[in-house]
Nucleic acid binder design. Structure first.
Lengths: 328, 328
DNA sequence: GTGAAAGCGCTAACAA
DNA sequence: TTGTTAGCGCTTTCAC
């Protein structure tokens, strides 16, 4: 059996309370007994049982993360940052993946609550009043990232809309007269929380409004590549394909290359995310970069602040930057 | 306050024991009271407290994963697979990232133990007798992946050596007369557990032995790209650059492109891992594919089998396959 | 079939 | 300064 506080108490001929005082640096104990207990604990290789501690304290020193999956590079980087910062602050991390399934997401959150996590970092596909109420009744702090849910909930992210608008401005400065917007998730509009995608789309619309371009072709849904192949690209009127994430942009580039459209000669491609793999891909994708690692870190910090100090450390929307590649 | 078993007991005028019997489908309770309790529980929105249950049962239904980081694509895919399978089997997953720091890794394992995880999936940088003893004293099942530690510990992986040997055979079939091997982690030989890297290297050595090639240039350490640039590539004697992972292969390709060496004209490049990003990169990297998702799934299944049935579900080394690209 | 009581390992309030 | 006691919410044993 593992050494318990009782074993130490017996070995030192003191009570469990005293052992607790020594072990956890609590006041009201003499240096002498403290040392005696500490020595015994070390010798007996005592390791505290967090399960028991959690039960009595009602805290677990654990954060729950609810994410779609780890396929997207950004998610992996995000998760990495969260785990790192959390452990620096003394917290463990439960990772739960929802596969973008709303029902699944609810189950994940429920389970995290049952396991008494001290806080939750939530990248949600759920949204709406009912869900909001549910979250607020949790009595467990939640910080949302990327997909905004409501102003009642702490949120950390970037100015998605402005970022995409800036991207479009940049594209326009390169004299493109026709625009295609690629964002398959928009097909889930209304059904799922795709706030981030919707904001980017709005930013795109606002962006092209400023420039006298033809009505854009908007590609929502999984068949975007087929639609793209049917599009009449032509050198006289250069077309810019603006994508809501780098992954789509890469697919677009592959497809265009496949049908012999020169990039950026005939068509320009704009991404969003600046995933780290881009450096191996040519032409270098022009994209929007934002501080994904910081988002993870700030989310943890704000959440822990709430847990320990009672209030979130509110974080202003973080900045972004156009990475000028060769694809536009 | 959350509804507890006591609340239900009070509401139903029964004892806590009876509620427990009803809730957990235990025998020794009439259908009538069971229904009454279940109804009350549903109505009162009862959610069991895992912390308390864990304390008394000594089990947490939680698996701990110890990984380097999530930067490598394969790790992210692996983690994704582990979480998915684990939750299918009713387990939650603690993710802990070690940054390849041996000390850190020990701390992670210790903490996981204190939190009473039911099992650990370990991708270790530690190794050696002392570490082995430590792991064996844990009384918590451990399954190791990739970096083999000892035959006393469950291990899931592929035939790394044979896989690299096959890769070299394939390369040789393409009439390369000179070989460079790239594996920066080999610089940590002896210091860190780099079993996987060492096996691949051995496979490489065994591989070229069969083919009358000149002594290979082996690039260990972080300066592999500089060394590569200084290498006298020449068209008459084609050189194959065999890399221990795709990430190095991509760096190599970037560097070679940078100095104007044609691939595969002057130099061939061979990878290992088949990360999913390859499909966006040209020339298509020739590489070795292995079932990373399966490794994650099998690790979970074997571990859970051990936890629940008392014995690991021993898994034979999984297969691999050469993906024929255009880089060799 | 059900209730009462003990206890998992720890913390915290109150006595001494 | 120290010991004692009473839980945290649940499971489990043993009476009845």
């Amino acid at each position: 059996m593992r050494t318990t506080i009782k074993d130490i108490a017996a070995a030192c001929h003191v009570s469990a309370g005293t052992v607790d005082r020594a072990l956890n640096n609590r006041p009201g104990i003499s240096e002498k007994t403290r040392k005696k207990v500490l020595d015994a604990a070390a010798e007996m290789n005592y390791q505290p049982d967090f399960t028991a501690r959690s039960l009595v304290m009602g805290r677990t020193l654990t954060l729950g993360v609810v994410l779609f999956d780890l396929y997207n590079r950004s998610f992996a980087q995000l998760m990495n940052a969260i785990e790192k910062r959390a452990r620096e602050l003394g917290y463990f991390v439960y990772i739960t993946l929802t596969d973008k399934n709303a029902q699944n997401e609810r189950t994940c959150i429920d389970y995290l609550i049952n396991r008494k996590v001290d806080g939750i970092i939530l990248f949600s596909v759920n949204k709406g009043k009912e869900f909001e109420t549910y979250l607020n009744k949790l009595h467990t702090p939640v910080v949302t990232i990327f997909n905004y849910i409501s102003s009642d909930l702490e949120y950390i992210g970037i100015q998605e809309r402005q970022a995409m608008k800036d991207a479009v401005d940049y594209v326009a400065s390169k004299r493109y007269s026709r625009f295609i917007y690629v964002s398959p998730p928009l097909a889930y509009s209304g059904k799922s929380n795709i706030y981030t995608q919707e904001e980017r789309f709005q930013g795109f619309l606002e962006g092209i409004q400023g420039h006298k371009a033809a009505d854009p072709l908007v590609l929502k849904g999984a068949d975007y590549l087929e639609k793209l192949m049917a599009y009449p690209f032509n050198k006289a009127e250069k077309t810019a394909v603006v994508c809501s994430t780098d992954l789509y942009a890469l697919e677009v580039m592959n497809t265009l290359k496949g049908i012999g459209i020169a990039i950026p000669g005939e068509a320009g491609v704009m991404g969003f995310d600046d995933i780290d793999m881009l450096k191996y891909i040519s032409p270098r994708l022009t994209t929007v970069k934002y501080p994904i690692v910081q988002i993870g870190e700030k989310a943890v910090e704000s959440l822990v602040h709430k847990i320990e100090q009672g209030a979130f450390k509110s974080v202003p929307l973080l900045g972004h930057e156009i990475i000028k590649g060769e694809s536009i």
